[in-house]
């Protein structure tokens, strides 16, 4: 702050310092107001960042964060040598990729369909229903999913059995579990995802449609040649944004939907850090995995941002 000021007024450094002090004094109540917020960030956001040091220490519960001995990269060597770690990373990418591959195009298609609806009441009711699952907790979603997909007494398998068909192990077969996971995710977030596209669609220039209509373009042609190009930049930005999150995954869905039989695909980075950190109290290992994930996340984010700017879109940071 001060340095900047000096550059602007190089000949009167003293007055500028005085001016800044006076200004800061004038805002004293604002600073006082901000104090609890800054304290909150210092304690609950920045103090844990210091705690990351235990990834380079042999954490001892009696010695604590400060006194535990440094071990360099030993903890990382240990986790990198563990095949469960690589399996968790693979599963994180796999689940994110499959979910993205299904939900991304589907969200755009549903947005376009909603955009074509002229009836205000129908549109409103449909949107209300589609947005609703976003606000339901994952515990409830997992409970509902179990009720629907269970092998023994789930609604769907009962129905299949009634039709004389083979039951499907939605929750206990690894392949089918991925299917169930994706279905639950798509169900929960598809409506929510349309909001951003619908907003972009309202911004499309009406006169373009009129001109195309007069030129005899069919509805489908208008969709392909006007609507999609108009929201292209939102689509690209959303895609890049989603790709930048490939390495992060929520803990709730895989933890609640998963079970011991599908651990081979349901164990992702977040559940893995939880299991070895909280349950096995291997604090150093868990922290090291968390740090590895954060660093990879930032690298992907920066790369995605660079890429976005390179192809002429807005950055995502």
């Amino acid at each position: 702050m001060e340095g900047k000021r000096k550059k602007e007024e190089p000949r009167r450094p003293r007055t500028s310092v005085k001016k800044t002090v006076v200004k800061v004094w004038n805002y004293k109540w604002v600073y006082l107001m901000l104090l609890p917020v800054l304290a909150y960030y210092a304690v609950f956001r920045y103090a844990p960042m210091y705690g990351i040091t235990i990834a380079f220490k042999d954490y001892n519960i009696f010695k604590g964060v400060f006194e535990s001995p440094w071990v360099g990269f030993d903890v990382f060597k240990k986790i990198f040598a563990n095949k469960n770690f690589w399996s968790a990373i693979r599963n994180t990418f796999l689940l994110n990729l499959v979910t993205l591959a299904v939900s991304f195009p589907l969200t755009i298609i549903v947005s376009l369909m909603l955009n074509e609806i002229a009836g205000v009441a129908f549109k409103k009711v449909t949107q209300s229903i589609l947005y609703l699952p976003h606000f339901i907790s994952w515990v409830v979603v997992a409970g509902i999913a179990t009720n629907l997909f269970a092998l023994q007494d789930g609604t769907i398998n009962m129905l299949l059995k009634g039709l004389g068909l083979q039951e499907v192990p939605f929750l206990s077969n690894e392949g089918w579990w991925i299917f169930t996971y994706v279905v639950c995710n798509v169900w929960k977030e598809i409506g929510w995802g349309t909001i951003i596209y619908l907003a972009a669609l309202t911004g499309v220039d009406e006169s373009l449609y009129e001109a195309a209509y007069l030129d005899g373009a069919s509805r489908f042609q208008r969709l392909i040649y006007i609507t999609l190009p108009s929201i292209k930049s939102v689509i690209v930005t959303m895609l890049i944004l989603n790709i930048s999150k490939m390495m992060s995954i929520g803990l709730d869905a895989p933890l609640l939907l998963g079970n011991t039989r599908v651990m081979g695909v349901s164990e992702v980075i977040s559940t893995y850090t939880y299991r070895i950190g909280i349950q096995k109290t291997q604090y150093s290992e868990s922290t090291a995995i968390g740090l590895f994930q954060s660093v990879v996340n930032i690298v992907i984010l920066l790369a995605a941002d660079k890429f976005a700017k390179l192809i002429g879109e807005d950055g995502i940071i």
């Binding site: 844990p48 705690g51 235990i54 964060v65 939880y274 922290t287 968390g290």
Partner: peptide, 17 residues
């Protein structure tokens, strides 16, 4: 404040705090 959106201590360090 914005920085905490991209980087954090993670599960265990937060738990310890």
């Amino acid at each position: 404040i914005l920085f905490t959106m991209y980087f954090g201590g993670g599960m265990i360090p937060t738990f310890l705090v």
